[in-house]
Every structure is written in structure tokens, then in C-alpha cells.
Write a protein that binds this DNA or RNA. Structure first.
Length: 301
DNA sequence: AATTCGCCCTGTCGGC
DNA sequence: TGCCGACAGGGCGAAT
């Protein structure tokens, strides 16, 4: 699940390879990945435009082109890779005994490759997404922040200042579980299941805790923890738990550093208690029953 | 008005 | 060995 750190890594690594280059041909191979537009018009709209800038907003990748913005959401299994001029076609994935796809060179062009942007000299940007939860859309000129999908996004977690944010944007009276709030993109943009669980563990907060039960110090700790786990994710160039790959096709390393996500039943790295797996806000959730105990006030009731 | 639920989709895995 | 159901889940629109 590409979340903020994964998307940030992709944007940072893609930028030096493609900035200023011209899209010679845009090849959309699966029309339903494209929103609000006739696939037939898509290639014509992109042809000849230059890539002025690439940036991230929440989990969205925004490519600012000469006359519009190409916006991509990677969904659950989306991959955006750069295929250099000297790329050898047969150097794709190698399957290991455990069934993991081990990248060798960049991604192959296969039945899951839904968009190819040809940049000239054989260079390409490839969008591949086996589960097709990803989305592609175009926004005119520089109006991408006004697009309905982007205008609803909350603050960028890495930019926000905690004190003012707590006063103005934190739904202090809400009864919903704190994990549901973390996953809400109109609260914080870019936090997904992995980093929500990690932030809750780091701040010692039970994922089911109603938001209104969080005391001021806990709210501060939670927001600091969100920033920390995201920054750490970026430092490790993302979590390759399943499909996520960097633009060069290689895996990130943050999966080796995770404290709770994907570790249900395994011992807590702090207290050795078996981590508990549950369902919170319809999402698989892992937490430590000791390090993230429910508050005394809640236990009483 | 605020939350929750159902759905989209396909590869992987465990059980029999 | 092969079949099958369960599971993974981001975000939207419908339902509550």
C-alpha cells in the first residue's frame, strides 16, 4: 500500500530522471484506470507536453505538464517506474521460492502495465497495478488543487505545526476510534494502514481509543509519532511489504523496521508480549496489548 | 451531520 | 496436486 513515504520516495527518485522531458506518446492500455475522460482523448491531450515538475500531495503523484496536470494514485498495488534507455526487456521480476517478486532491473511490461509514457530515446515511465485500485486523471492547467479528489485532503503531516493544528483541525469531541481518524485523508493526507498502526504503537495509544478520550499530551505524542514514522519511512525509502517498488524497480527497506504492521502474533519488540490482530474501522490492525493498553478510564466502564 | 458499510479487483495462501 | 474460499485494503458513494 503506497502511502506518504512510498509516494514521496517515488516522486524524489523519478524527478531527476524525467524533469523537463517531453512526452512523445502516452499509451493507455487499460481505459478504466482513467477517470472522467474518454480514453481516446487521453493520448492526444498528453502528446508533446513537457514534464515541468513532479510533486506529491497526500498519496497522489502530481505531474505538472505544460498545459495540464497528470495525477496518479497508486491504490493498493500501483507501481511507477522509470525505464531507462538501456533497459533490457527480459530483465524483469524473478520469482523466489517464497513467491516474493524480486526485482531485477525495472518492472516488466506485462498485462498489469496500464500506462506507458514514452519520453524519447526509448525512455519510459511505466505505471503498473495488478489490482487496479489505482487511478489516473487529468486536471486542466494549474488547477489540480481544486480537483474534488485533492481539495478534500487535510494537512500534510510533515508540514503541520502541532499546536495550531490541535487547536483548529483536531476533532476533539469525536467518538470515532483514533485509528479511523488517522486513516481519514481529510484529517491528515497520506497516512495509511501501515503508518497508522506504527504511529499508534510509537505513541502507546490503543487503536480503538475514542478520539475524545485522548488527553492533550496523548494528542501531541500521536502527531509527533505520525511525523516520526513517516520520516523514518522516507529515510528507508518506503515499505516494500508486498508490491511497492522504487522507480528503479528495487524494494524499499522500511519493512525490516516495522514495529507492529504485519507482525500479528509475533512478540512485541519492546515487551515480548504477542502482538494482537484485530479489526478497527474495517481495517486489519495490529497492536501490543501491553504497550498500547486501553486507558484506565475506559477499562472501568 | 457524522460514521459506517459495500463495493471495486486479482494474486496469494491455507485447508482439504 | 488442485480447487476454493478467505484475505489484503484506499477511497467513493450509498446507507444509516
Amino acid at each position: 500500500m503506497p502511502e506518504l513515504p512510498e509516494v514521496e520516495t517515488i516522486v524524489r527518485m523519478l524527478l531527476p530522471n524525467v524533469e523537463g522531458k517531453r512526452i512523445e506518446t502516452a499509451e493507455l492500455r487499460l481505459g478504466r484506470m482513467l477517470l472522467d475522460m474518454d480514453p481516446g482523448n487521453f493520448s492526444a491531450a498528453l502528446k508533446g507536453q513537457s514534464i515541468d515538475r513532479i510533486l506529491r500531495r497526500g498519496k497522489y503523484i502530481v505531474m505538472e505538464l505544460t498545459e495540464c496536470a497528470l495525477v496518479i494514485h497508486l491504490g493498493m498495488t500501483g507501481q511507477l517506474t522509470f525505464s531507462p534507455a538501456d533497459y533490457v526487456e527480459n530483465a524483469g521480476f524473478v520469482r523466489t521460492v517464497t513467491g516474493m517478486q524480486k526485482p531485477k532491473g525495472v518492472h516488466p511490461v506485462d498485462k498489469h502495465t496500464h500506462l506507458i509514457l514514452w519520453l524519447g530515446n526509448g525512455e519510459r515511465i511505466l505505471f503498473r497495478d495488478p489490482r487496479t485500485f489505482g487511478k489516473i486523471f487529468l486536471v486542466p492547467a494549474r488547477e489540480w488543487p481544486k480537483h474534488p479528489r485533492l481539495s478534500i485532503l487535510g494537512e500534510e503531516p510533515l508540514q503541520l505545526r502541532i499546536k495550531p493544528f490541535l487547536e483548529t483541525r483536531f476533532p476533539a469531541a469525536s467518538a470515532r476510534p483514533v485509528k479511523a481518524l488517522l486513516l481519514d485523508q481529510s484529517f491528515l493526507a497520506g497516512v495509511g494502514n501501515i503508518y497508522a498502526d506504527e504511529a499508534l504503537f510509537r505513541s502507546g495509544i490503543h487503536p480503538q481509543t475514542p478520539v475524545r478520550n485522548l488527553k492533550e499530551p496523548e494528542r501531541v505524542r500521536l502527531l509527533e509519532a505520525v511525523k516520526e514514522v513517516l520520516r523514518k519511512g522516507i529515510r528507508n525509502s518506503g515499505t516494500s511489504f508486498s508490491d511497492y517498488r522504487k522507480p528503479d524497480g528495487t524494494a524499499g527497506s522500511n519493512q525490516e523496521k516495522l514495529q507492529v504492521y504485519g507482525r500479528g502474533g509475533e512478540p512485541c519488540r519492546k515487551c515480548r508480549t504477542p502482538l494482537r490482530k484485530s479489526l478497527v474501522a474495517q481495517r486489519g490492525t495490529v497492536h501490543c496489548p501491553v504497550c498500547q493498553a486501553k486507558s484506565a478510564a475506559r477499562r472501568k466502564s
